[in-house]
Design a binder for these strands. Structure first.
Lengths: 146, 146
DNA sequence: TTCACTGCAAATCATTTGCAAGGCC
DNA sequence: GGCCTTGCAAATGATTTGCAGTGAA
């Protein structure tokens, strides 16, 4: 599996290292759209020397090389997604969870409005209440994550 | 005009004050998707006692009351838009400019995937190179704003 | 040896918070 | 008087930067 991840990086022009493989591996296995800090916390046990700087650098590198998506869906931190296929995201304002949404039509904007433009990224975010939080009603301590 | 803005705020349940009117006025007249700091810089001349705290608080209030949109299109700062009608945004990675895009179809995601969800916000961002930067090529000092 | 990768510590900087003062009803 | 708004200063916290050490080709 680690070897698969290693090749995954090489294919995307990223020199594999212990840290990079571990971070990519984490992204591919955990589809929770983690922040840099969450990844750091999860990996620093198995890689005690890991530094947050490396996690930040690596995630930025991954995003540049198209090996991961950086999501600006959360005002607080940048979230990362190892799934680079075309899809939208939903963020629950109550529990904070980010859920993937399949996309039927990507081009919402009439191409005539984009003449002369080069589009390199399209992102669509939905926010609101997820099924679970919606039905729990406002019973829970609504931490108003916003 | 100021009086119009005042009523605009009242209609949205926002108590008007000198500062709030000035900020809303700025948003309605400047469709540049400014950051809190840009608004502060623009207004602190005419309102010397204005504090950044007030600008931040006010913009957050506007966003809550639906009098403005807060855009997370820029990793660096939150941008605000006084135009609350449905539209998408394009951000040029070279010059950093944010451009409004008319939207033809809002629902890219099949509603069946959103059953049980409450959607309160939909945002769509495009990034790339704007017409101008595209044709200038990489001649300019590409500050790689990203 | 070279050069890229790593990681610590310090810096940066947008945003928030605590709190006292002022203003409006 | 009481409450909401303001604004200063300090705090917070995510991300970046400087720089020295380390390791692989």
């Amino acid at each position: 599996m680690t070897n698969t991840t290693k090749n995954y990086l090489i294919e995307r022009g990223i020199k594999p290292s212990l840290q990079r493989i571990a971070i990519m591996d984490y992204l591919l296995k955990n589809r929770t759209h983690p922040s840099a800090d969450e990844i750091y916390q999860a990996l620093c046990e198995s890689i005690p020397t890991l530094s947050k700087t490396t996690v930040y650098n690596t995630l930025k590198l991954f995003a540049q090389q198209g090996a991961a998506l950086s999501l600006e869906i959360d005002e607080k931190n940048i979230r990362y997604d190892g799934d680079t296929s075309i899809h939208a995201h939903f963020r629950c304002k109550s529990c904070g969870e980010i859920i993937d949404l399949p996309v039927d039509q990507v081009n919402m904007v009439d191409p005539k409005h984009l003449e002369g433009f080069v589009i390199t990224e399209i992102s669509a975010f939905y926010k609101g209440l997820c099924d679970k939080c919606n039905h729990e009603g406002s019973l829970m301590q609504n931490k108003s994550i916003n």
